[in-house]
Amino acid sequence: MASEKYYLGVDVGSVSTDLALLDSFGNLVEKVYLRTRGKPVEVLKEGLRIIEEKYPGIEINGVGTTGSGRALAGVVLGADVVKNEISTHAVAASRIFPDVRTVMEIGGQDSKIIIIRDGIPVDFAMNSVCAAGTGSFLDQQAARLEIPIEEFGYYALQAKNPVRIAGRCSVFAESDMIHKQQLGYGLPEIIAGLCEAMVRNYLNNVGKGKEIEEPIVFQGGVAANVGIRAAFEKELGCKVHVPEYYDVMGAIGAGILAREYILENKKKTNFKGFKITDFAFKTSSFECDGCPNHCEIVNIYENEKLIARWGYQCARWEAV
């Protein structure tokens, strides 16, 4: 096993931190899905430890990071590729469904649509103003109703007549759900109504003006929700495919892109190795008072050594 070359893809998102270990052909060997819990670096180290324990002594040939924490994860790991989540999701979806024409992804706090033709993305959109239709909101509602999030979708499937919930804004959606509850509608009906409202909201905002054509792949954490899946199929009137590893597609994409980059450029990886799980990473921030912009500068330290800095707009803090 030690002679095999592996690639690692890491997706540090708002809600979850995912790791995907790929073999030398780019196939998924192992996936790790952890909650970010607001501590991206700690959780990232935890994920690495899990992989190291399961595959002791493996050689990592390339590392790619993605997600909103991609830059941070990139400097912590020594990534070869730091990619935006739209590109990584598109790559992973095309890998698993080579004919895919539409990718819908709903994550913790963002949702996106990617239109793919002949294997390359030609158009995309991301939710811009509101997170009403994303995982965090579902999480919150599941907690409010005291239903485990894993079972949330199944409630929706039991509904006979979903009620109509106003889904434009998550605060109003919640008021509307409570209102319908007080009127006496059943829980499954309300949950199914919420799923339909979220799907409507997604198609009207993120999917507006996009040519949604089959085959459609639905991925991201929310794809686990069978209620949302069913609502999509009902609204679009066609089958929606959910890949087996729907929850770590971003990480898979990052790994594939890292592999592509290493092979194409015949590079050696920058990966610092599994030893970083013992390193101490620290961040500190301060407000620069050099001008009225008051930039919030963040310093990232590895074992007391400054390794990265961002948040500035001018040359004053460029040197690390």
Binding site: S68, N84, I86, S87, I120, P121
Partner: peptide, 21 residues
């Protein structure tokens, strides 16, 4: 910043892949 940067990077990737193809 973050939203703009992510979309720009994705757009540039898209253009690059299209051009390569």
């Amino acid at each position: 910043d973050a939203g703009i940067q992510t979309r720009l990077e994705a757009f540039v990737d898209l253009l690059e892949r299209k051009k390569r193809q």
